[in-house]
Design a protein around this nucleic acid. Structure first.
Length: 573
RNA sequence: UCCCCGGUUGUGUAAUGGUAGCACGGCAGACUCUGGAUCUGCUUGUGGGGGUUCAAAUCCUCCCUGGGGAACCA
């Protein structure tokens, strides 16, 4: 790779420091990393941090990153997850080429290494049940004063079986001679070890469960602690980057590599990503889906990549976010506003502008020539002159946002109210002369204005200061759309911290999705395709949802514009 | 309780014995045909005590505090 770090280049985080040092010391001569998802769920934004580090570190040092499916638990895994995971990684912009691997392809290799350990007297077949195993390990128990003690573990009565017997038993485990759970293969390390994961960890268990790739070929499956370091070694992974929770497993990782005498991969741990107002755990996300709190795994409010994509997040925005949050070992909670900022920044640069009215209120121009339509120029993107202009129709009967008119305005309100003038964006300056009201409901049904013919295009003649500019549509030309306004799923900054007795799912904001069926848009929106994104002027960024395909277009609000009026309103309240 | 790892401003992250910086958020202002964007300024920070040193966020030590581990899951 051409963009590898020059020898003297500064590393930008502690992992790259370590990699650089390993290269300098000769511990490794090149870099190979891996991203090892288990195909048992959809990728979420927390995973993007992990695989951006995995792929990014490899890339920075001219190395390679393998994609390896860590599929050693047949009960949970499925091909559909494999496909979804690959799709999502590619969406973010990473490619692994030929380097796609499966831990399930290593079963024979792993079996051989297990045999090797048995021969060395470093592994044995144990007959303890799972419950007994736990108890023998010395699990912590509170005493009568409620002080917890961690007793040393006790050796299993089967710990001293002969090598021959272990070899025979292990072969028969594989052959299917024993019931599920009847026996395990365990590493023989130290039942008194202060680190509980070192107390003779289980290497293999018996489970008659068809695997999505190996079918019924195996009834014994390797455990993570045994399988992972050896899979890394098989692929020549130099730096096995993972989250902090595996830190305590590192001595075991190193033990298996040493005892099996294989390639000395190095594990380095970093803090996983947490985001405010969000949950990032497969279990919690699954429940949101199962309880139908959301539309599915790809609901625009979900932090899954599929959800973010449907919401209108761009890969560029997500990658920018990732580059800003940094990498460290401190448990952190990143403000969701940083993510939103990154999206706004990207879309501000790229999204075509268009006018749409969420809650239309008719505006009648009393002095507009009957039946006349004027086609005006509108800028497609003020941030990008190359985006050009378009023609938009203007007429005597318009639609404006209901919020942009008030019968009796509060202080600092400078949109439309009787006697006040506003600019209709790219249109004319208009002055409110009155309004119609439904006597029965008291609701305003139309606003009446006169327009100033000298202000065509929105240009104010000298000295005529107009504070407000509002968006509008020509009623006869407007196309109906559906808008879906999204807010954070959880009002609480830390949804997982709920008081005892409270079910976290009850804290979901029922108004996190608001459907606005009667919205209207300018003619350009008639031909949109799912995935198209726009800025609706003054409202926010919207992305066309697949739901509207073929019929009335549906737009998801990806993120609103910063709204300083909302702030003023809040202050007044 | 034991074992492991952390604690830099509201949040995240730099500073690798030598000026505590950057970003987001928040606040104030400027500007503006999106109350957008942009720009400017401000924003109570090295958890605490001792020690080493000319000099400590950084090294040592004790304490405080947060997270993780104790699955035949990964």
């Amino acid at each position: 790779m051409s963009d590898s770090l020059p020898a003297g280049a500064p590393a930008s985080d502690f992992i790259r420091e370590a990699v650089k040092a390993d290269l300098a010391s000769g511990r490794f001569s090149s870099v190979r990393t891996r991203f090892p998802p288990e195909p048992n769920g959809w990728l979420h934004i927390g995973h993007t941090k992990a695989f951006t580090i995995d792929f990014g570190v490899a890339q920075d040092f001219g190395g390679v990153c393998n994609l390896r499916f860590d599929d050693t638990n047949p009960e949970k895994e499925d091909q559909s997850y494999v496909d979804a995971i690959k799709r999502d990684i590619r969406w973010l912009g990473f490619e692994w080429g030929q380097n796609e691997f499966y831990a399930s392809d290593y079963y024979e290799y792993l079996y051989d290494l297990a045999v090797k350990l048995i021969r060395k007297g470093k592994a044995y077949v144990d007959d303890l049940s799972d419950e007994e195993t736990r108890e023998y390990r010395g699990t912590a128990v509170p005493d009568k004063n409620n002080i917890t003690h961690t007793p040393p573990g006790r050796n299993s009565p089967w710990r001293e079986r002969s090598v021959e017997e272990n070899l025979d038993l292990f072969a028969r485990m594989r052959a299917g001679e024993f019931a599920d759970g009847a026996k395990t293969l365990r590493a023989k390390i130290d039942m008194a070890h202060p680190n509980l994961v070192m107390r003779d960890p289980v290497m293999y268990r018996i489970r008659r469960e068809p695997h999505y790739r190996t079918g019924d070929a195996w009834c014994i499956y390797p455990m993570y602690d045994f399988q992972h370091p050896l899979s890394d070694a098989k692929e020549g992974i130099t730096h096995s980057l993972c989250s902090l929770e595996y830190e305590i497993h590192r001595p075991l990782y190193d033990w298996f590599i040493r005892e099996c005498d294989v390639f000395p991969s190095r594990q380095i741990e970093f803090a996983r990503l947490n985001i405010t107002h969000t949950v990032l755990s497969k279990r919690w996300l699954l429940r949101l889906v199962k309880d139908k709190v959301v539309r599915g795994w790809d609901d625009p409010r979900m932090p899954t990549l599929a959800g973010l994509r449907r919401r209108g997040y761009t890969p560029e925005a997500v990658r920018d976010f990732l580059s800003r949050i940094g990498i460290a070992k401190t448990d952190s909670m990143v403000d969701v506003q940083l993510l939103e900022h990154c999206l706004r920044e990207d879309l501000n640069r790229r999204a075509p502008r268009v006018m749409a009215v969420l809650r239309p209120l008719p505006l009648i121009l009393e002095n507009w020539p009957e039946g006349q339509v004027d086609w005006l120029d509108a800028v497609n993107n003020p941030e990008d002159p190359g985006a050009g202009t378009r023609k938009i129709p203007f007429s005597g009967r318009l639609l404006i946002e209901r919020d942009d008119f008030m019968e009796t305005p509060p202080p600092k309100y400078f949109r439309l109210y009787p006697g006040n003038s506003v600019r209709l964006r790219y249109g004319f300056i208009v002055t409110c002369t009155g309004f119609d009201k439904d006597p029965a409901t008291g609701q305003v049904t139309a606003v009446r204005c006169t327009y100033n013919p000298d202000t065509r295009g929105g240009n104010a003649p000298d000295n005529s200061k107009v504070r407000g500019t509002i968006h509008w549509l020509s009623e006869a030309h407007a196309v109906p759309i559906e808008a879906r306004l999204y807010e954070r799923l959880f009002p609480s900054e830390r949804p997982m911290d709920v008081p005892p007795g409270v079910d976290w799912i009850s804290t979901v904001d029922p108004k996190s999705e608001e459907i606005v069926p009667g919205a209207m848009g300018e003619p350009a929106l008639a031909g949109v395709k799912p995935g198209d994104f726009y800025q609706f002027e003054r409202l926010g960024y919207f992305c066309c949802d697949p739901d509207g395909a073929g019929g009335k277009p549906v737009f998801n609000r990806s993120v609103s514009l910063k709204d300083s009026w909302a702030k003023i309103e809040k202050k007044n309240a």
